[in-house]
């Protein structure tokens, strides 16, 4: 059971600005992280469950959640030949309070070099009704670099009967390869009745999820494989779609269950990884809930 901390107890006198700079470097055949952090962001010790060439990192947010005015900045660099796999310890929470009359902001920059790979597979973010949440990720890939990331949002605490009818989410992912824009996803979700109920918007679904792989044009078989993973992942009402990007593949989920979204995304990742990283995926112990 997950216990929600009363958000009022978290409101600090001044807003947080957590920072995380993570550089992954290849030393011999090992991927080694160089870490710089500022609270409330931390990184656990790296581990190597699939051998030393792939470094696994787990990011931790020690304050438990964000209120308006809080800021998190990520700067991730994966140097040539290195391979990093990153997740988070828990769901991120964005509370509905904004004591500083500003949104909660996450800003990330990612650079992946030739022959390098970043897998960014965080747990979901729970955006409380009334929250103003902005995230902006800019991902720069060199030719021959690979990036696979997913982002799962729960809008409103559905378990509490809450709908996302107030607040706003702005979520922008921009991926460049060789300095050219290859995928941009500027999402804008207004907490209002039209966006919440209409088939054009959320269709009364509190959970939306996106998985993107970017790095190279992919054959149609990858799309079929990703679609075929959906029926087994689905246990609650929800819709799933897959398409090709100019240099990759995109999956979208709109439904009622973060578990369904993650189960599907994990299955897709298992399908794709042998193709772009020439190694099988493994089942992370962190996700076994």
């Amino acid at each position: 059971m997950r216990i929600f901390v009363q958000s009022s107890s978290l409101i600090p006198g001044t807003a947080w600005h957590g920072k995380l700079a993570l550089t992954y470097r290849q030393q011999g055949s090992k991927t080694v992280p160089v870490v710089q952090t500022q609270a409330p962001l931390k990184v656990q010790r790296p581990f190597y469950p699939e051998g030393e060439s792939v470094c696994h990192s787990v990011v931790l947010h020690t304050a438990g959640g964000m209120v308006g005015g809080d800021r998190l900045s990520y700067a991730i660099v994966v140097e040539p030949g290195a391979h990093a796999w990153v997740t988070t310890t828990a769901a991120a929470k964005i509370y509905g309070d904004h004591p500083h009359q500003r949104p909660a902001i996450v800003v990330g920059t990612v650079q992946v070099a030739t022959g390098a790979c970043l897998e960014w597979l965080p747990q979901e973010s729970i955006v409380f009704s009334g929250a103003h949440y902005h995230q902006h990720w800019r991902i720069d890939l060199a030719p021959g670099a690979h990036w696979l990331g997913w982002d799962i949002l729960r809008l409103g605490r559905t378990a509490h009967g809450e709908k996302f009818l107030a607040g706003e989410v702005r979520s922008r992912f921009e991926v460049f390869q060789n300095q050219r824009s290859v995928w941009v996803d500027p999402q804008w979700l207004l907490g209002d009745e039209r966006t919440w109920s209409g088939v054009h918007g959320l269709h009364q679904c509190p959970v939306i999820g996106t998985l993107a792989y970017v790095g190279q044009p992919v054959p149609v078989e990858w799309v079929a494989a990703a679609r075929d993973c959906w029926p087994a992942a689905r246990r609650h009402p929800g819709e799933a779609g897959v398409t090709r990007l100019q240099a990759g593949l995109l999956c979208r989920y709109r439904g009622h269950s973060t578990q369904d979204a993650r189960r599907w995304f994990e299955a897709v990742w298992h399908q794709l990884r042998p193709h772009y990283a020439q190694r099988p995926a493994l089942r992370s112990r962190l996700w076994q809930r």
Partner: peptide
């Protein structure tokens, strides 16, 4: 300001491909 809510369109068009 260049942002949009495209969930319905994305899913409908992905569905149309098949």
């Amino acid at each position: 300001d260049l942002m949009a809510c495209n969930w319905g369109l994305a899913l409908a068009s992905m569905g149309h491909e098949t």
